[in-house]
């Protein structure tokens, strides 16, 4: 039957996490088809075709798909789904928006944020902010699964799958795209960065976050934050790491002025090495940190920045 991976993209290329989703999908069934829906998405379809392990790419070009409105994309996926045993999406803001709509239209359950494929019908997924791991089995004929990209290695490049053009379903007229206010950054994207520097309420202001930017730039790191820092307006919403923000698992995570609430830990505790800088030696973040440094961040961060050679 095969797996249908629904890929998010920016018109030029599929998102980096599609390669992780392909790896997860191939553990369900080695026959992996990627759907690239969009408007003028030739390049994105080509980028999907180059992912190793992809058997086929379906390219659905339709003006209705330009902005990934769930109301318009879901019917297309629903139409294709009966040809597959699984529909897989990365658990990012696109997958989380669309996959449940597809599942309900098919009258099947969804497995959210799978972190492990045990067998084609059995998955491990975190619940309670990652404080418990549930192994769930689905008996549905079509299995809808979102996968947490950081738990699956990205499939390599160098593939050359065939691209088949299919028609679109048009717009349903329920919703329209107005525009976006995207945070501009030259830094690596948070969820795929090798190093992440994150700041919390301890930073006290957006102005002080500049200190972390300097450190991040020296390390070639992505920049993250706790919910408290986002709520206080120090940084934009897409910086939030945690249970209800982004999940990251870099080689190095540096938490600065972050106490380590379970909701924050849920988003970063799979990082390979964790460093915490906090003036409170009893802060819970030290319970997960490989290296803890107790002291005033306003003194320690500039010191650390100075001690690191530029990459």
């Amino acid at each position: 039957m095969g797996v249908l991976v629904v890929a998010a993209h920016d018109g030029k290329a599929v998102r980096a996490n599609v390669a992780n989703a392909v790896t997860a999908a191939s553990q369900m069934d080695p026959d992996v088809t990627v759907l690239v829906a969009g408007s003028n998405c030739d390049d994105a379809a080509k980028s999907a075709a180059s992912i190793a392990g992809v058997t086929k790419v379906l390219q659905a070009d339709d003006a209705a798909y330009a902005n990934w409105l769930a109301e318009d994309i879901a019917p297309l996926v629903v139409k294709l789904a009966p040809n597959y045993s699984h529909v897989v999406m990365a658990a990012d803001s696109v997958g989380k928006n669309i996959a449940p709509r597809v599942a309900a239209l098919l009258d099947v359950a969804q497995v959210s944020e799978a972190i492990q494929v045990v067998s084609p019908d059995t998955f491990v997924r975190p619940i309670y902010a990652g404080n418990a791991m549930a192994t769930v089995q689905t008996a549905d004929k079509i299995k809808i699964v979102t996968v947490r990209p950081t738990n699956f290695k990205a499939a390599a490049g160098g593939g050359s799958a065939a691209i088949e053009k299919i028609g679109g379903e048009g717009a349903k007229g329920l919703s329209s795209y107005v525009g976006a206010e995207l945070s501009k950054s030259e830094r690596p994207e948070l969820t795929s960065a090798k190093i992440v520097v994150s700041g919390g309420r301890g930073l006290q202001s957006g102005e002080n976050f500049k200190m972390l930017e300097t450190l991040a730039d020296k390390l070639g790191a992505g920049l993250g934050a706790s919910r408290a820092a986002v709520d206080a307006g120090y940084v934009p919403n897409d910086y939030q790491v945690g249970q209800t923000g982004k999940v990251v698992a870099p080689d190095l995570y540096i938490a600065i002025g972050i106490s380590g609430a379970i909701q924050h830990l849920a988003g970063m505790k799979d990082s390979k090495t964790i460093v915490a800088i906090n003036k409170d030696e009893d802060a819970p973040i030290f319970q997960v940190a490989d290296y803890g440094l107790v002291g005033d961040l306003f003194q320690l961060v500039p010191e650390l920045t100075a001690a690191i050679e530029k990459k």
Binding site: A109, V111, I127, G130, A134, T135, V136, T138, Q287, V288
Partner: peptide, 18 residues
């Protein structure tokens, strides 16, 4: 529709150093 086969503790991180 989903059957929960089991629920387990996540792997613990080993304690680090200061």
């Amino acid at each position: 529709r989903l059957k929960t086969l089991k629920v387990e503790e996540p792997p613990k991180r080993k304690a680090g150093i200061k």
